[in-house]
Design a protein around this nucleic acid. Structure first.
Length: 510
RNA sequence: GGCCGAGUACCCAAGUGGCCUAAGGGGACGGAUUGCAAAUCCGUUAUUCGUGGGUUCAAAUCCCACCUCGGCCUCCA
């Protein structure tokens, strides 16, 4: 099996993936997924899709990947930055937003939900997330249809979280403070800070930022973080040995990774903002709770996306959801490629021009693929034929991905042969193997099957365009070029672009 | 203040000591095609890799200094 080399945030080095699995075939992979209090935006999806590319690359070289991605439906406060659970539950905020939308009549048709029910809100956005995820080819979301365990939700794993918190108390790594809150005792875990570089000393020196005096009163250490907060007034609450309340926001991933993958896993992914504090705290919880030196062997982090050169964030409001982009007629394939084509450890720039670039490349691959299909059917096989251009490209493609997911190089490998073998009809190689090769490459990129715009059909526009095209065809037949061009301008004014092909005129929305 | 990246043509971007007078894509330009376009196809488009030093027979690639930009450390992937 080809070795996949990946940059490990924990060691700051590129390292080969060596599975825990004794047979070396199965890879355990946990990804931090979305928090479903709103629609996911393109930046969220860059992180999820990079995890997907990694998973598909592992599968390309022959691994079986058990991939789990959580859908967080509880436990995040608007102000839980301070690690003490202050602020307001995001689900409550989402509920207010939905309530306003309901009053204003801007909720999508057919949606009926109680905006005061946090679980209903979470379900609402989770369903929309899964729709987007499947549109973009996130394999774990497709797996979910057959395997209900691969995208767990914290609200369904509260007992496991309580269990882990108990273990941490029993083992002397957590304590119940005078305010009744269960805290993790960071001082009890010397390796804290190894992932992020935020050692306890560094955190203390960083005075003023996240460590604020008013939150420190009951904690042993400044960096101690919450595991369970008793709060009977909270919107979502569960019984626990420490009173009715809710879990700390790091606890879910430790508990669910252990539940669905194991106490030690091969790869753990997330966006770079997860490195600290979230993943640092996960390591502390899992290692201390289960008594082992390692939680995830490899940490895989995707850097943030910027939009047209500007940092995007929810608070700034300059972000696009997947649905926003789709509404502009962009194909899922183009969006998928645009989000993964730049190396995951650089700050990628999302642009409309970039989407166009991607679309042209994908269209060319699709034409090459389509040209190969009939040949592969009729071709007798030629098993002894030398490797054709796509087979050769597949080698370079795989090599590039195995080298720390070098998607740009992998894409170049395809491009460099697409031009040189336009019809795939060469007599010297086997069209069937060529087809398999291009499909193998697409098994990672995942674009050929989703190269169709999701834009809702507009029947009125379609009828209008059909009529104009017919008028133009008549004018052209009569060689009335002035009239023909006028009609084309009219179509253009409608935002419609036409293409004259051998089978007649086709059109697309601009 | 701590941590981490990046600066390669008009734009995106690969390349980490010789195969580099620098891959691939987009754009632009020229050609084919077209009634003219669009789409498609073919061709052209960096002797040069942020700046200044150094190491070496040999550097975009290694070392030093400097400049610039970005990200994380708070919500957020």
């Amino acid at each position: 099996m080809q070795t996949v080399v990946l940059h490990n945030t924990l060691t700051h080095r590129e390292e080969p993936i060596v599975p825990i699995d004794a047979a070396g075939r199965r890879v355990l992979f946990y990804s931090c997924g979305p928090t479903v209090y709103d629609d996911a935006h393109v930046g969220n999806f860059r992180s999820f899709l990079n995890a997907d590319i990694l998973r598909r690359t592992l599968e390309l070289v022959g691994y079986t990947v058990r991939h789990v991605m959580n859908i967080t439906d509880v436990g995040h406060m608007t102000d839980d930055a301070n690690a003490d659970g202050a602020g307001e539950d995001k689900m409550a905020v989402a509920g207010r937003r939905l309530l306003e939308a309901k009053k204003a009549g801007t909720l999508p048709d057919g949606v009926s939900l109680d905006p005061r029910d946090p679980l209903a809100i979470a379900d609402f956005y989770a369903a929309r997330f899964l729709e987007d995820a499947r549109t973009l080819g996130l394999k774990v979301a497709i797996d979910l249809l057959a395997d209900p365990t691969c995208m767990p939700r914290p609200t369904r794993c509260i007992p496991q979280m309580i269990e882990l918190a108990k273990r941490l108390i029993d083992r002397g790594h957590a304590y119940v403070a005078r305010d009744g809150v269960v805290y993790f005792d960071v001082g009890s875990f010397p390796a804290y800070g190894r992932l992020s570089g935020n050692t306890l000393a560094a955190l203390r020196e960083g005075a003023g930022e996240r460590i604020q005096a008013e939150h420190q009163a009951f904690k042993r250490g400044a960096a101690d973080f919450m595991l369970w907060k008793p709060d009977a007034s909270h919107l979502l609450k569960w019984d626990s040995p420490w009173g009715a309340g809710y879990p700390g926001w790091h606890l879910e991933c430790s508990a669910m990774a252990a539940e669905f993958l194991g106490q030690e896993i091969d790869i753990h992914s997330g966006g770079e903002d997860n490195i600290f504090p979230h993943h640092e705290c996960e390591i502390a919880q899992s290692c201390c709770g289960f008594g082992q030196a390692t939680f995830a062997r490899t940490w895989f982090h995707t850097r943030h996306l910027v939009v047209e050169g500007q940092k995007m964030s929810k608070s700034k409001g300059n972000f696009f959801t997947v649905r926003d982009v789709m509404a502009r007629g962009v194909t899922p394939a183009a969006l998928r490629l645009e989000l993964v084509r730049m190396h995951y450890r650089t700050n990628a720039n999302f642009t409309w021009q970039g989407l166009k670039d991607c679309q042209r490349q994908i269209d060319r691959w699709a034409r090459a693929h389509a040209a190969l299909v009939p040949h592969a059917r009729t071709c007798p096989g030629k098993p002894s034929a030398p490797a054709g251009p796509f087979e050769t490209a597949l080698g370079e493609f795989t090599l590039a991905l195995c080298d720390d997911l070098n998607v740009a190089r992998a894409v170049a490998a395809i491009n460099s042969v697409v031009a040189s073998s336009p019809d795939g009809a060469s007599a010297t190689h086997c069209a069937r193997r060529e087809l398999q090769a291009i499909q193998s490459m697409d098994s990672v990129l995942g674009v050929l099957d989703r190269n169709t715009s999701q834009q809702p059909a507009d029947d009125r526009l379609a009828a209008q365009v059909a009529e104009l095209i017919a008028r133009r065809a008549a004018a052209r037949a009569a060689k009335e070029w002035g009239e023909s061009d006028r009609v084309r301008d009219e179509l253009s004014a409608l935002g419609v672009q036409i293409k004259d092909g051998p089978e007649g005129t086709t059109w697309t929305r601009q």
